[in-house]
Nucleic acid binder design. Structure first.
Length: 381
DNA sequence: CCTTCCCGCCATTGA
DNA sequence: TCAATGGCGGGAAGG
């Protein structure tokens, strides 16, 4: 008997186009953020998210874990998370940075150093000895003693959340701004660029990088020398010393959404921002956008009148923040900022990453939404 | 071909 | 016990 009802007849191919991108974690993340970055949202119920976003539960866990380790959410109970918003990021980064530098110094002493610091009891992991443990594939340390606590700990070590934190630490705790995923992976493992562990690690890093990209904490590029793909950090890094700059304060419980990152294309290290490349991108993008808006004018034009008619209600991703992002963005464009060197020619409109990504995300989101509605809504009429 | 990474099985955890 | 959670890697889409 087994399978007869499911695979059978009709839905071999969902309509004309199935695209992985419609199901990507980064899109999901964007939608998630759109859904909850709104006035009055304090608590998030996972069931709610699952149904509103119409995705498998498993994926929600992915998103939520990553967001939590960035400080956007915090778990309050089973099935419940508190919304911290983008304003929580600065604090989280600060914490990560302190944590990172402390550990680096600490392991000079004993290997023990039971450090239990602020709030969340999260500590980790190898990287103490770069090359001692070497090959310990599966049966590591499973002698007889530490199996109870160590097992749990072992599991935690491999969690997406922790990996995210460590990945972010890579950027925040150093001057390095760019890593390829392989680099990151091998750095996160104890430099043992070995075996299948790397592969798995990298797989996870793809996931993480994608959601961080969708929030514009990082962006995908490639190394200048090699053509290898890599990720560049975009968010302001916390200052190592206390006091001084109050640039990234954590004011309200909630802050502007995409406003912040629109302001920081390149804050520190104001050096060589690849102008040429950027202009190229801008041009290319402009073209693409124009083209796509023909192809899918629905999304394009809709997006525009969100600004005014903000009562329009649609799918999983709500208009609310459109106003928010419309404001800063347009302001941004005409503001004679320090990067007016870039703005000199060509339309300043889409030259900034954040905006660019945003628009493309919204376009994707719209497509997805339309498909879904179209499909599961024969009752409609 | 190689890179990216979605899907969902199934082990763990927690109530 | 069972439901919620979340490693993990196969293998398919994308380039």
């Amino acid at each position: 008997m087994s399978l007869d009802s499911n695979s059978a007849s009709k839905n071999v191919q969902r309509h004309y186009s199935y695209s992985r991108k419609q199901k990507s974690l980064s899109l999901l993340c964007t939608n998630f953020l759109s859904l909850y970055n709104r006035e009055g949202v304090e608590l998030i119920c996972l069931d709610d998210a699952t149904s509103k976003l119409a995705v498998e539960r498993r994926r929600i866990y992915d998103i939520v874990n990553i967001l939590e380790s960035i400080g956007v959410l915090s778990r309050t109970a089973k099935n419940k998370y508190a919304w911290r918003g983008f304003g929580g990021i600065a604090g989280a980064l600060q914490g990560l940075m302190e944590d990172g530098s402390k550990k680096e110094c600490l392991n000079v002493f004993t290997g023990d150093s039971s450090s239990k610091e602020l709030e969340d009891g999260e500590d980790e992991e190898s990287l103490s000895n770069p090359n001692t443990g070497s090959q310990n594939d599966k049966s590591d340390a499973s002698i007889l003693s530490v199996s109870a606590s160590s097992r749990t700990e072992n599991r935690r070590e491999k969690s997406l959340g922790l990996l995210t934190k460590n990945f972010v630490k890579l950027f925040v705790c150093s001057d390095e701004d760019m890593y390829s995923l392989d680099e990151a992976a091998s750095r996160l493992l104890g430099d043992g660029s070995h075996s299948a562990m790397m592969k798995t690690k990298v797989r996870r890093l793809y996931d993480i990088a994608n959601v961080l990209s969708s929030m514009n904490l990082i962006e995908k590029t490639h190394t200048p020398d090699t053509r290898k793909p890599a990720f560049r950090w975009l968010w302001p890094k916390p200052k190592s010393d206390t006091g001084t700059t109050g640039v990234l304060e954590i004011k309200g419980p909630k802050k502007r959404l995409f406003g912040t990152e629109l302001t920081n294309i390149q804050d520190r290290s104001g050096e060589s921002l690849p102008i040429n490349k950027d202009q190229n991108c801008a041009k290319k993008l402009e073209k693409r956008i124009r083209h796509e808006s023909l192809t899918s004018e629905a999304s394009g034009s809709k997006l525009k009148d969100l600004g005014q008619g903000q009562n329009y209600h649609f799918g999983p991703f709500a208009p609310h923040d459109t106003s928010k992002l419309d404001a800063p963005s347009s302001r941004k464009v005409k503001e004679p900022r320090d990067w007016n060197s870039l703005a000199s020619k060509y339309r300043p409109q889409y030259q900034n990453q954040a905006l660019r990504d945003l628009f493309s995300h919204y376009r994707e989101a719209w497509k997805t939404w339309f498909y879904e509605v179209g499909e599961k809504n024969p009752v409609r009429n």
